[in-house]
Design a protein around this nucleic acid. Structure first.
Length: 560
RNA sequence: GCACCCGUAGCUCAGUGGAUAGAGCACUGGUCUUCGGAACCAGGUGUCGUACGUUCGAAUCGUACCGGGUGUACCA
């Protein structure tokens, strides 16, 4: 349609435009364009006159059942349901409906969900998992080759805190019993003890922490054994939870892997003059030319590596190993400043790869006075496993009395949790609320899953007569078909800005259209010709539900 | 102080230049021996934070201000 308009305008007015066609309020027609309004000004003509010329050309194509001019110069187009249906069939026959080749031949690295080893998986890590996974799927749907890398936080002070705290506050029995949750308690208790000690001007515990870090650095056997044990417990837990979330990564190169490489890179930058060593021994990369008055610290004064050190090495490693066109970091907005510095440094050392910080807002909790505040361990975090358990419990309660498999319960619970993260723009802060985090009605994952399950049931129960439906008019299906035809554009837009909420909002609209159709049309009572036509359309709706939800990491249950 | 994000219905949020700004939740009523009611239909709320500007046209773009959030080199 856009192409036709473009041609007409080129022919009549000899100007190049990219006309936009939108879906107006149904009372106006099926499609609408305001292109006459846009080009009237530069042409020095009356918009309605321009609209007249364009619309008479549109009428000549014979593709529209009605062409109307409205208001200041909108052109409203109505197309017969039959023609729209034919168009849908054509698009499906091309294969991979909804996907495109925008990124073909290009490689992206997606860095996610990158949790810290020290603490149990909390809802704080929900968004990097959801958003990172959706980014991967969206990029793949548009032709990219995607490499996912779980950048584990397995280096630094936490290890010392663990050992010193474990010796003081815990035991092997407790560790055996509660695993990572015991490690989490130890971590929190030790952090608190360190704070109290510092306030009392003491340093005994803090010294112990540093001592253990040094021991690990020097390969002390006891330290190495603690490191192995704690990392094993923590990593098992991370894998277990990621498994429940149905997410995975291709690689797991943690910070510990990059720390020694980072130190080498620091030396290289020092000799090349990019980095500067301060009198206290710390090393910085000045970024004044990028508008930062805060330099990036890449080595502590005691010579130890820190975040930027390992990230520097990570950037170099990924360049050598994968030579990506794009690197996506799925990390919260709190680190926006840090990443802008990191990317500036990357540019300074000659890395040309597109570095993209996939930001998302924090998860808030409601205070008793009604105000919102970022969820923190101080206020009490919600654990990921607890959230999953409660969601499954709720889904199970709703399906009680029916024979629903455990697998389906999990798909519903996960669908509810994930979808709630995709309702809003990812930059929006999320309000964590036990009542809405896994909503099962209205704008929710299960609402869409339910619409899909209904279709699957129909397709399963009603045999397609397979008769020719060349005379069928598709009037009843028109709204659904028009909605289906929007899908490729939605994927294109969502992928280019990595905004999965656009897919989520679209799928909800499609599900609503589908449910309305379901209320009004009884396929079981249709003639053979109608059945064949309608079941063909339903197959396509189910396809879009399946593929669209898959972009969000959500599965369609077999029953619910 | 500076930087970034946000401000749309009672609440949670869609809507990045077009027609009368939309959903969910909550509230009220209706549909109901159904291809599965986790559904459908009906009922109503808005100084789109404020002001000025750009434009034929602004929730959307620009500037300033107000309010909230997040950061601001030896944590990650």
């Amino acid at each position: 349609m856009e192409k036709i308009l473009k041609q007409i305008i080129k022919q009549k007015y000899d100007i190049e435009v990219d006309p936009k066609v939108s879906r107006p309020d149904p009372q106006f027609g099926d499609y609408a364009t305001n292109v006459a309004l846009q080009i009237a000004k530069p042409l020095g003509k009356n918009p309605r006159e321009v609209a007249e010329v364009i619309s008479s050309e549109l009428e000549k194509t014979g593709q529209f059942s009605k062409v109307e001019i409205a208001g200041p110069g909108f052109i409203n187009l109505t197309i017969s349901a039959k023609n729209i249906a034919n168009h849908l069939f054509e698009e499906f026959n091309k294969g991979d409906f909804g996907e495109n080749q925008d990124g073909v031949g290009k490689i992206a690295v997606v860095d996610y969900p990158s949790p810290n080893m020290a603490k149990p998986y909390s809802v704080g890590h929900l968004r990097p998992g959801n958003q990172g996974w959706a980014a991967k799927k969206l990029l793949e749907a548009t032709g990219w080759k995607v490499i996912t890398d779980n950048h584990l936080g397995d280096y630094g002070a936490p290890f010392g805190i663990w050992v010193a705290g474990f010796k003081r506050f815990s035991s092997y029995d407790a560790l055996e019993k509660d695993g990572v949750y015991e490690l989490g308690r130890v971590y929190i208790a030790t952090k608190k003890a360190l704070k109290d000690e510092a306030e009392a001007n003491g340093s005994e515990l803090a010294d112990e922490v540093q001592e253990w870090l040094l021991k690990l650095e020097n390969k002390d056997p006891e330290a190495v054994e603690f490191s192995r044990l704690f990392n094993e417990i923590s990593l098992n837990h991370i894998h277990n939870v990621m498994g429940r979330l149905k997410i995975s990564t291709d690689y797991e190169y943690g910070e510990a892997f990059f720390a020694p490489k980072g130190k080498e890179e620091v030396q290289k930058l020092l000799s090349s003059g990019v980095a500067v060593q301060n009198d206290d021994g710390s090393v910085i990369v000045p970024l004044d030319e990028y508008g930062f008055n805060t330099p990036l610290l890449i080595q502590k004064s005691n010579g130890a590596a820190l975040y930027a050190t390992t990230d520097l090495a990570t950037i170099k490693f990924r360049e050598q190993e994968w030579n990506p066109d794009k690197v996506v970091y799925a990390v919260g907005m709190e680190q926006q400043f840090y990443f802008s510095q990191l990317f500036a440094m990357a540019d300074k050392i000659g890395i040309k790869t597109d570095m993209y910080h996939l930001t998302f807002g924090v998860i808030d909790q409601l205070n008793e006075d009604g105000t919102r505040e970022k969820m923190s361990s101080r206020k009490g975090v919600v654990l990921m496993e607890e959230l999953l358990d409660k969601a499954e419990e709720k889904a199970r309660k709703l399906t009680s009395g029916r024979d629903i498999s455990d697998d389906d319960i999990k798909k519903i619970a996960l669908g509810a949790i994930k979808f709630s993260d995709f309702i809003a723009d990812r930059r929006t802060n999320i309000l964590f609320d036990w009542n809405t985090i896994f909503a099962l009605t209205g704008m929710s994952g299960p609402y869409i899953q339910y619409a899909a399950v209904r279709i699957a049931k129909i397709l399963n129960d009603i045999k397609n007569p397979g008769v020719d439906y060349i005379k069928y008019d598709f009037e009843s299906e028109k709204a659904v078909i028009l909605k289906l035809l929007e899908y490729p554009e939605v994927v294109k837009n969502a992928a280019s800005s990595l905004e999965p909420h656009k897919v989520a909002n679209y799928l909800y609209d499609l599900a609503r259209e589908m449910n309305r159709y379901y209320e009004n049309v009884r396929i079981a009572e249709s003639s053979d010709e109608e059945k064949s036509a309608r079941l063909d359309i339903l197959t396509k709706v189910l396809y879009v539900f399946d593929r669209g939800l898959d972009l969000l990491g959500i599965e369609v249950p077999s029953q619910m």
